[in-house]
Write a protein that binds this DNA or RNA. Structure first.
Lengths: 143, 143
DNA sequence: GTTGGTGCAAACGGTTTGCATTTAC
DNA sequence: GTAAATGCAAACCGTTTGCACCAAC
């Protein structure tokens, strides 16, 4: 079980991983593609997607699917939280501890096997606070 | 500010809302389209999308977005949690209470104005447990 | 030499949009 | 009568995929 596929160390994969780890911006695949392209001008977007998938599969990076529409990626895999600006979509790390694990408080899982929970904070980033100091329509929290 | 647009009570909007509220399945736009179509055979998918957007904007329904997958909608707007099957994407309600509010435990918001947090549980639904009782690759928890 | 990976381009699937027409108000 | 909403179809955009060639092992 869990047949690990033999991976090859291609320069593309190495550089994609390197560049992602060098960033704290949780880039989208497209953004990372533009950055990697500066070092590998002939790389294709498909290769970036494929390698992000592989790196995620092997647990070397995080895939933040909870973002907006586009997936965002994170080279930092230690346990931490994220806050997303409801106005511009920007994501930032939050270093903090929770005194409880919400998973332990699920009373009736309805037959589900509860595996994890994903806490995402929502707010307004410094830049967007300046632009709209007042009362914007604002997205409602999503459950 | 917050200029509310004048809405019209079209039969389409009313029936879309009605049918969504009658369901506990958190349907996708496409699924709801198929259901609504039984009562309004000439309705278009675009109309369903537009009305779901409007209803969400006005706070009458919830929009459950996960990047990379289809959005799902919920006619039940009272505070409750959701668990999503990492295998088939199915969503179910969780009625439960948390003894704390994670928002109160953010120590360094990094200039963000923290507004809310969104807790989503991940697991395997009963149907998918039967199909794969053993150890699947499995998605890692997302933060 | 084998087989995983790449570059390219085309396909895919969910969602949005432009436009002429309809309809709620 | 006016402006919002509809139906339709085409466009959009992030992502995936088929394929011939390339390269890590």
């Amino acid at each position: 079980m869990n047949v690990e596929k033999r991976r090859r160390n291609t320069p593309q994969r190495k550089i994609i991983h390197e560049e992602l780890c060098a960033l704290k911006t949780h880039p989208t695949a497209g953004e990372l593609f533009e950055i990697v392209r500066r070092r590998l001008p002939r790389i294709s977007l498909g290769t970036v997607y494929r390698n992000l998938e592989v790196l995620h599969e092997d647990g070397h990076i995080l895939k933040l699917e909870t973002a907006g529409t586009e997936a965002r990626f994170d080279g930092e895999t230690h346990e931490h939280y994220h806050i997303r600006c409801t106005s511009c979509g920007m994501i930032r790390d939050l270093e903090m501890d929770l005194p409880i694990n919400p998973v332990d408080h699920v009373t009736d899982p309805g037959g589900f096997q509860v595996e994890a929970c994903d806490i995402r904070f929502l707010g307004t980033c410094p830049a967007c606070q300046e632009i709209t100091p007042g009362d914007e329509p604002g997205n409602q929290p999503i459950h």
